[in-house]
């Protein structure tokens, strides 16, 4: 659906994006990851046509990105706000009309969302009278009010309390199930695992990792297992695995082991079962957090 090809963005003293290419599939939830200052926001701004790349191209549904696509994209920036002195309803109407809705359609869509979010009574309120969490709900509605095909959320959960974060997460998933493609950038790796189908990791202006979350995790499997058993392991010396760490409590022992390349998990089990009573055997799969840290540190 969204095809980013060889994007380069140069600022006076530094290169924000260096030959970045990313493919986002239709209907997926895509995580754009990276440490602060990596170039995520620069890329998002280019997708939103706020700034233009120095070179490279972006295609949306096979068409080269152009101003007519603005109405198909919904964008919730990291630095977000509202006009403080304007009534919420008026403000929503303005923002929706800027996205290309007619006044009539905009009114209907806003009413639908206000009812859905249970904030109908806010229509005449001014933004300065709302709490921060309330404002974020309004901002989220402004992002999705024109029913965009592509929704881009830059750090959507920053500043949300857990309850509101859950409300927004559910809305995102619902929109996704109705066919919208979602890109979001975040630092919160647990929400990546929870929500994303695919990710791309940008570090120091370059894309260093991309793929489906499962694939990426598979790529970072290190043949490490966690074993728990009761009894005494008679020969701890073996060529099958090395023990990375061990804890024991009375008769119960917990080990983290790294299995040698020639062997499979079943070989280790076959080796263990005759000797001890195995009550836990689990592969240690790296979390996105681990993968993130591992990549960014190198």
């Amino acid at each position: 659906m969204l095809s980013i090809r060889n994007i380069v963005k140069q600022y006076a003293n530094h290169r924000a994006l260096d030959d970045v290419s990313i493919e986002v599939e239709k209907g997926s939830v895509f995580g754009l990851l990276g440490p602060n200052g990596a170039g995520k926001t620069s890329l998002i701004r280019i997708i939103n046509q706020i700034t233009a790349p120095d070179s490279g191209e972006i295609y949306l549904n096979g068409e080269k990105l152009n101003p007519s696509h603005i109405s198909k994209i919904g964008y919730l920036p990291e630095e977000r706000g509202l006009y403080k002195k304007m009534e919420i309803g008026e403000q929503m109407l303005y923002l929706a009309q800027l996205k290309g809705l007619s006044r009539h359609d905009a009114t209907e869509r806003i009413k639908y969302w206000f009812e859905k979010m249970e904030i109908v009574s806010w229509w005449k309120k001014k933004v300065e009278d709302l709490s921060k969490g309330m404002q974020q709900k309004v901002q989220f509605i402004a992002t999705v009010v024109h029913d965009p095909e592509l929704i881009i959320l830059d750090e959507p959960f920053s500043g949300f309390d857990p309850l509101n974060a859950q409300v927004i997460t559910n809305e995102i998933l619902e929109l996704n199930s109705k066919g919208a493609t979602i890109i979001f950038s975040t630092h919160r790796m647990e929400s990546v695992e929870q929500l994303c189908d695919s990710i791309a990791l940008i570090h120091r202006s370059k894309k260093i990792l991309e793929g489906k979350v499962k694939e990426v995790k598979n790529r970072y499997r290190s043949n490490t297992y966690r074993v728990g058993f009761t009894g005494q392991l008679t020969s701890s010396e073996n060529s099958m695995f090395t023990i990375l760490s061990s804890t024991s409590d009375n008769n119960d022992t917990h080990l983290t082991i790294k299995v040698g390349e020639k062997y499979a998990a079943n070989d280790v089990l076959k080796f263990l079962i005759p000797q001890v009573e195995v009550n836990e055997f689990m592969e240690v799969i790296p979390s996105m957090n681990d993968i993130f840290i591992q990549n960014v540190k190198n």
Binding site: N48, Q49, I50, I70, I73, Y75, L76, P77, E79, R80, G81, L82, Y83, K84, L95, L98, K99, Q139, A142, T143
Partner: peptide, 15 residues
């Protein structure tokens, strides 16, 4: 005002 209230980025994603 648009800059400090951070509305500007929302608006210029449309205009």
């Amino acid at each position: 005002e648009e800059k400090t209230s951070r509305i500007v980025e929302v608006v210029i994603s449309s205009v």
